[in-house]
Design a protein around this nucleic acid. Structure first.
Lengths: 332, 332
DNA sequence: CTGTTAGCGCATTCAT
DNA sequence: ATGAATGCGCTAACAG
């Protein structure tokens, strides 16, 4: 029941605690003989250094906090996995918390994180803005935004190239004779939705397309489903684009229930390429984001920042990939 | 950059650090006047108590470690959410780690957890056995198993009633005239697969069904897909049951590609009712596990155990629910 | 190369 | 009701 500590090990090995510490951390040379003794003692007592004590002493906890909107959304688990995998390599601990996109929740989470002496925070797709960031900076806590860029402030980020991805998708649609577009986008207050809208609007403009419609809704199955239920079937466009794959699923299901054939009557597209999209019926044409890699990269970046002395601000943009499947077809 | 500590607050408020501590923890009465001063100082300095220091001092970190096979499997995120939601209410911190079902990984994770002074560990669907548990018990670290029962040892657990669920499913199939069964089960070394097999075998026995086949494979889409690709179409049974929903998906897709109509030519069933099964084409007949609730309950249980003095061993079995959808139909 | 010692921030005796 | 002093387990500065 009692915790084995460094003192116990020192006594067992017949050395001082500093020697034990040196062996553990390889922070200074120790004579072979003593080193062996210490290692044996550690093994014998099953000693595990207290990270808590170490953190207190060093003022660093080797811990990264992760704020995520909702782990239940199939887009996020792969990101988390990516983050975790990298962090593990660096012997960092991961603190995870779901914010539900709620600013108040987010604030509470950060406070808890701060109490835990975290070294850095990765925010995923969050709405968090300036006031808090300043506070974190003052406390020396590093920040990386994932899947979002904060305008006007120097905060490092990792995103995928939403704009290019959206452009590729639109270009493909255009090349396959799609001339009228609906875009059922996600939450207006998110970076992803905004960037995708910008790319969309730009494309319409450039190609002089007048027949289009854009609405912000919500990044969920239900949002797509509802739109699919309400749209006027007599005025179906060539393609209805979902702000993400979930919206596209909802769209397809609702239309299917109303007897609309996909892709025969209308093309449907998504965004993200979550693992299921390949298996959906019909399989979904979408834009793949390198989800796992985004997580991995963000973790890498924050560790880099933590390990550097001066302030570092770095933005990383990852490539997307157009994935054409069976929910779209060339229009006549 | 410097951390505000209890001393700073004490100085600001003009009291001793013990008084500040008392105010924060309500551990002893403090005169109204001083209390106010302290609270103001805390607010002014934006003081956040160091959980690290507190943990070191108290020997308890108010932290729960979670070992999960793979956050990327759609079955788990809801469990994690359930755990997190409960833990948050109790002001506990969650440490998350993916084990990939690998015993060595698991061992490393536990060691890290232990270094972090965790109070308890929740294992999800893990294969971890005796040797480690004993070690944890010696260290006073509480353990709860989720989705798995360890035989012969006193370890608390939360599971859903796999046996009853399987029975309900089979009874439904039997009542709708299914008389020949294939069961493509998951990994043999998992609790879930074993229990489901037992229920299956028992049912075959009781109802004197001779026409059945059971194999252990792997809880994945690919496992189901492969089986669906290889099965002899001339000897299709009335129903092919998947060990979980993912297997069922793979089964359906492979059969579909080979021109087999579901449920017309063969019924397909799953297990778990992950959120997508409702939307699959065809929608999947399956057994719903109360996924979120299992997580929530496990978190509740471990806190209960931690807060009790003596050793507590408690097994909680949650109810499952048969969900009949369109991947099955009455046989003629 | 090794040992002694201070102090990280806090909760908790023990005095008063 | 309040303050002073101790120590949780560790690392780093210092002394040898």
């Amino acid at each position: 029941m009692k915790r084995i500590n460094i003192k116990d090990v020192a006594k067992e090995a017949g050395v001082s605690i500093s020697t034990v510490s040196r062996v553990i951390n390889k922070s200074a040379p120790v004579k072979e003989e003593l080193r062996k003794k210490v290692e044996e003692a550690i093994k014998k007592l099953e000693y595990k250094p207290s990270i808590v004590a170490r953190s207190l002493r060093k003022g660093k906890a080797k811990t990264i906090g992760l704020v995520i909107p909702d782990i239940t959304d199939p887009y996020f688990p792969h990101i988390v996995k990516g983050i975790e995998d990298y962090l593990k390599k660096e012997d960092y601990t991961l603190l995870l918390s779901n914010s539900g996109q709620d600013l108040e929740q987010e604030t509470k989470i950060i406070e808890t994180f701060e109490s835990n002496h975290i070294d850095g925070v990765i925010f995923i797709g969050s709405g968090l803005t300036n006031p808090y960031l300043k506070h974190l900076k003052e406390r020396g806590i590093k920040v990386v935004y994932l899947d979002r860029i904060l305008k006007g402030i120097d905060v490092s980020y990792v995103v995928s190239d939403n704009k290019q991805g959206m452009h590729d998708l639109l270009q493909y649609l255009y090349d396959t004779n799609h001339r009228s577009f609906h875009f059922v986008n996600g939450n207006e207050n998110t970076f992803s939705a905004q960037v995708r809208y910008e790319a969309f609007a730009e494309f319409m403009e450039k190609n002089n397309i007048k027949s289009y419609k854009h609405i912000y809704s919500c990044f969920s199955y239900d949002a797509g489903y509802q739109y699919g239920k309400e749209i006027d079937l007599k005025k179906l466009p060539d393609v209805i684009m979902g702000g993400n794959d979930l919206i596209a699923y909802g769209l397809m299901d609702a239309l299917d229930e109303r007897g609309v054939k996909i892709p025969d009557d209308v093309s449907i597209t998504g965004f993200n390429d979550i693992p299921f999209s390949r298996h959906y019926k019909p399989s979904l044409t979408t834009v793949r984001q390198p989800i796992y890699k985004m997580g991995y990269t963000a973790a890498n970046l924050i560790i880099q920042i933590i390990n550097s002395d001066g302030p570092v601000f770095k933005g990383i943009v990852l490539k997307t990939e157009l994935i054409v499947r069976n929910s779209t077809r060339r229009r006549d």
